[in-house]
Design a protein around this nucleic acid. Structure first.
Lengths: 118, 118
DNA sequence: CTCCGTTACTTCGGACTCGACAGTACAAGT
DNA sequence: ACTTGTACTGTCGAGTCCGAAGTAACGGAG
């Protein structure tokens, strides 16, 4: 109740206040998968990150789940995946531009969640 | 298993950077359920909201899913539920203080998602 | 007295998702 | 020859989620 000067008179520059939040098919479904949001922020925090680094960061995640979540995020264009022709193999994940923007918007949520959850 | 040995070759310029985002059990699991984030923002947008109003706002959500999601959010303390002894029944949902804070932090994400998804 | 309309939920069965564990490919080191 | 290290992939069973249809309650219409 800080600033309700807006009334509900529907200013024309806000074409979608409520209606928008309900049709979010792709992105919200993606973010609703397990570890998706944390993953974005973790990769954002440790920069180009190898698979093993990411796996170690989470305490309890199976490799199959982590792998498919990474694939999801790469497919959706929020993470980039660079594979080097080395043995043992090396793969680095990093945020794309869209991923960085997403990370920025996720940050306040996760910070608050971290404070609140512990 | 070694524990709490900070021999990572990382600069300690981040107080609570990576480790925090991975232990988020409760809240992130809750928000990862379908429609949970949208629900918070919708209730925040239309104020005290009746069940039917919420249902109408979403185009495709089954009543069972909506009902359990509302229960989840009420149990977690982000929504309040007020039931009136009338026929036909009337129930109103609203954000609690924690819910409002959550909504505030969800806002930038959902706005961006709405722009991007359409 | 019987049927209908309204509202806020349940119930049910199928679909999807997750985690544990094991296995793969490849080369360098011992 | 055998172990080590990395980044996965496969399989299976358990758990979770979702949507369509049904339920309960009462006032009002006929």
């Amino acid at each position: 109740m800080t600033e309700a000067t807006d009334d509900r008179s529907e200013p024309s520059d806000s074409p979608c206040d409520v209606d928008c939040y309900c049709q979010l098919n792709g992105l919200m479904d993606l973010l609703s998968r397990r570890y998706a949001m944390q993953l974005i922020c973790v990769v954002g925090a440790i920069g180009p990150a190898r698979y093993g680094e990411i796996e170690d960061t989470f305490e309890s995640v199976s490799s199959s789940t982590l792998s498919s979540r990474l694939d999801d995020l790469v497919d959706a264009g929020y993470l980039s995946r660079e594979q080097y022709a080395e043995i043992p193999p090396r793969v680095e994940y990093d945020l794309t531009d869209a991923g960085e923007e997403l990370c920025r918007r996720l940050q306040p949520l996760l910070e608050w969640a971290a404070d609140r959850d512990v």
